[in-house]
Design a protein around this nucleic acid. Structure first.
Lengths: 157, 157
DNA sequence: ATTGATAGTCAAGATACTTGACTTATAGGT
DNA sequence: ACCTATAAGTCAAGTATCTTGACTATCAAT
């Protein structure tokens, strides 16, 4: 029964809000840099998907499992990236139901650039925070993730 | 069944990805808890908007400025929340163009619950990480935010 | 040979945004 | 007072990223 919220501004400030703000800021920067680097099709959802595709290619079914979204969402993201010429779908020689998603040359080039961009932004963050705080942040997040990811129920429709 | 993750070379792991994962996990938990607590209309976008409304009400124009999204987006979020009976729009006595958005009783009740839920989740995270790491995380994020938020150009359409 | 699970597709809908085109009210010169 | 640029808000339409539901093709195990 406490009425102690500030009158003028109820600005949120808790760990979840900070995570959300930081995450959004990072993504905005990342996408903006990638577009500047000559990849105008770049978005963060697409980047996430591409990051889950191995060099030799990955089956759609594995992407579903790894990304924790529905197969339809994965399919639509791939559709878009295929239309951009960034990914290609190959038949799976071991299972005629399956399709293997591979990077095209264009996709690999974007991946290379994305590594540079990520490093650049991380470097900036490292300078902003100082080595110690940056490490602490990275470390805390690393401990948080395995502990909170327990959703073994998002594989099919 | 053993999972074939032998070619998982391209798993993303950088600070941005960790932030994104942590942020998404937090949001999922938060929304789920709030719905369980009797607020089925709850989403994270709506929560964000509500968090920016002061006790005495806030003009839409101010929300636009604070949230960094377009006025149309704000309007649509308010439309939805008004239809749910969570917010109400009042005329601004000092400017007949303006409208002041206020919480209804229902909205205030949700805000109270949301504080409890946030505290509960934060408590869990604190236990997961340990006091020291939790503080380090919180502190690092706090230092990150003011330094990275410099987008003074998203006010109108 | 049948049957049930798995891989993928097609269609439609929800959410959270966007840009563009307007209306109305205010504020600042002249 | 008048005129105009700007600000506050609305209406309409479109985009990106997801969802559920219904379907086909293939495989694997009886």
């Amino acid at each position: 029964m406490v009425k102690r919220l500030d009158e003028r501004s109820a600005w949120p400030d808790h760990i979840g809000w900070r995570l959300w703000e930081a995450s959004r800021t990072w993504q905005r920067e990342f996408v903006a840099e990638m577009r500047k680097a000559g990849h105008p099709w770049f978005t963060d959802a697409r980047a996430t998907l591409m990051g889950h595709i191995a060099r030799r290619g990955t089956r759609q079914a594995d992407l579903i499992e790894r990304m924790g979204i529905t197969k339809q969402a994965v399919q639509q993201l791939i559709d878009g990236l295929e239309a951009e010429g960034v990914l290609a779908r190959m038949p799976d020689p071991r299972d005629r139901r399956g399709r293997i998603v591979v990077h095209t040359e264009k996709g690999l080039s974007a991946l290379r650039d994305s590594n540079d961009v990520k490093k650049k932004i991380e470097e900036r963050y490292r300078r902003l925070l100082g080595e110690e705080r940056f490490k602490a942040l990275s470390d805390a997040l690393k401990h948080l993730l395995p502990a909170t990811e327990k959703d073994p129920d998002k594989t099919s429709a």
